[in-house]
Structure formats: structure tokens, C-alpha cells
């Protein structure tokens, strides 16, 4: 979709609104809080995102999620609850899925980060992205990037033999079953309730590769 520069985009309106709010509230906050704690601390950090080295100088408070969205313009990763409860911010760091909202960007020096933009592109979809489309694994789509990053990691975790709460045996190789996938996806909430189709999409991908 193309917007000309005078058409307000949804994102532009949100950013503009946030700036207005910040300008009007900053003096009140400064009056109440000792100055020492309001001064931002800037630190440099370098990591790889989707195969590309990125160097940033960030306020230490910046989460990995905000670094990706606000500083690197990778807005595929979504901010839902911002407290690790919904999973919309799930990304893959050094091969493991994590909540990018509950980790500081400066803690990721040298790490390799994969976001939804790095899994596939509209021209060349990741098999999990294609399966989500095929199985209608979403409605509004807001949780979908996190669901897909999580789903890709879940199949990897099962293949690596990591047991789950519902694994009958702790020592046997866990199987890719609907029961296992549902338990392992419990950190990703979908308000539209596309869960059963997400599990179908995952089963499809697992079957293809098996």
C-alpha cells in the first residue's frame, strides 16, 4: 500500500499523539521526581537482526521490542501487553524464542535476532507463514507475528527433545501432537480465538518436514 506524504497513516497519528502527550506532561513529572532519576543513560549496543549488523546508542530503558519497532523500524513484531503475558512480541534470539518486551536491548550485545521480517517475505514466505494463510490461523492478525515465531520455535524445541508439561514421559523423545503444541503455545494469546487453526497450521508444517 502506498501513502502520499500528506495522507495521515494510522501509525503517523499514533506517533504524533504520543509526542503531544509527552510535551504536555514532562514539566509536571520533572517537578516531582529528583533530577538524578530522570536523566537518561545512553549505552551503545551492536547485534545482528535478520542477518544484518545493527549498531545503536540507546536509553538503557529501551526494551528489545522498542529497539526493533521504534529504532530499526521493524514493526512486524507487535507490542500487546508489554508485560510478557500475551506473546505478541515473541522473537527468536540465538535460536530461542523469547518475549522481546521483557528484555533490554543493551543486554543483547553480539546476539543474533530473528523477527517475523527475517523468517520470510511476501514473495518468499516461510513455510509456517504459508501454513497460517492456508489454515486461516488468524483473524485480526495482531498476534500473528508472535504466534508464527513461537510456532517455528515450538517445532524446533520438540525436535530437540525438550519435554513439556504434558509429555507423558520425561525421558522419551516428545512427539508432535496437537496436545503438545497447544501446551507449548500457551504463552501466545489470540483474542480472535484462532487457536485450533494455528495448531492445524503447525501440524501441517511438522508433517511436511517429517
Amino acid at each position: 500500500m502506498d501513502f502520499d506524504e500528506f495522507t495521515p497513516s494510522r501509525r503517523g497519528v499514533i506517533v504524533g499523539g504520543a509526542v503531544t502527550v509527552a510535551v504536555t506532561t514532562v514539566p509536571a513529572v520533572e517537578a516531582q521526581v529528583p533530577r538524578k532519576q530522570t536523566m537518561a543513560h545512553i549505552e551503545k549496543v551492536a547485534f545482528e537482526v535478520n542477518g544484518k549488523r545493527r549498531e545503536l546508542a540507546l536509553d538503557t530503558r529501551t526494551t528489545l521490542l522498542d529497539a526493533l519497532r521504534e529504532h530499526l523500524d521493524l514493526t512486524g513484531t507487535k507490542k500487546g501487553c508489554d508485560h510478557g503475558q500475551c506473546g505478541a512480541c515473541t522473537v527468536i534470539v540465538d535460536g530461542r524464542r523469547i518475549n522481546s518486551c521483557l528484555t533490554l536491548a543493551v543486554m543483547h550485545e553480539g546476539d543474533s535476532i530473528t523477527t517475523i521480517e527475517g523468517l520470510g517475505t511476501p514473495e518468499k514466505l516461510h513455510p509456517m507463514q504459508a501454513a497460517f494463510i492456508r489454515h486461516d490461523g488468524y483473524q485480526c492478525g495482531y498476534c500473528t507475528p508472535g504466534q508464527i515465531c513461537s510456532a517455528v520455535s515450538v517445532l524446533d524445541e520438540i525436535r530437540r527433545g525438550i519435554p513439556s508439561h504434558v509429555s507423558a514421559s520425561l525421558t522419551d523423545q516428545p512427539q508432535i501432537t496437537n496436545f503438545e503444541m497447544r501446551e507449548r503455545m500457551s504463552g501466545n494469546i489470540c483474542r480472535c480465538g484462532a487457536y485450533s487453526n494455528i495448531a492445524e497450521a503447525m501440524a501441517d508444517v511438522a508433517g511436511e518436514k517429517a
Binding site: 510478557g84 523469547i98 521483557l102 504463552g187
Partner: peptide, 12 residues
């Protein structure tokens, strides 16, 4: 351990 949190949180 497996009864606690979510896969993402346990990874971190």
C-alpha cells in the same frame, strides 16, 4: 519447571 510460566519465559 515445565509447569511454570511459558516457553518464551522459560527460555530466558
Amino acid at each position: 519447571l515445565l509447569a511454570g510460566a511459558s516457553g518464551q519465559l522459560r527460555n530466558k
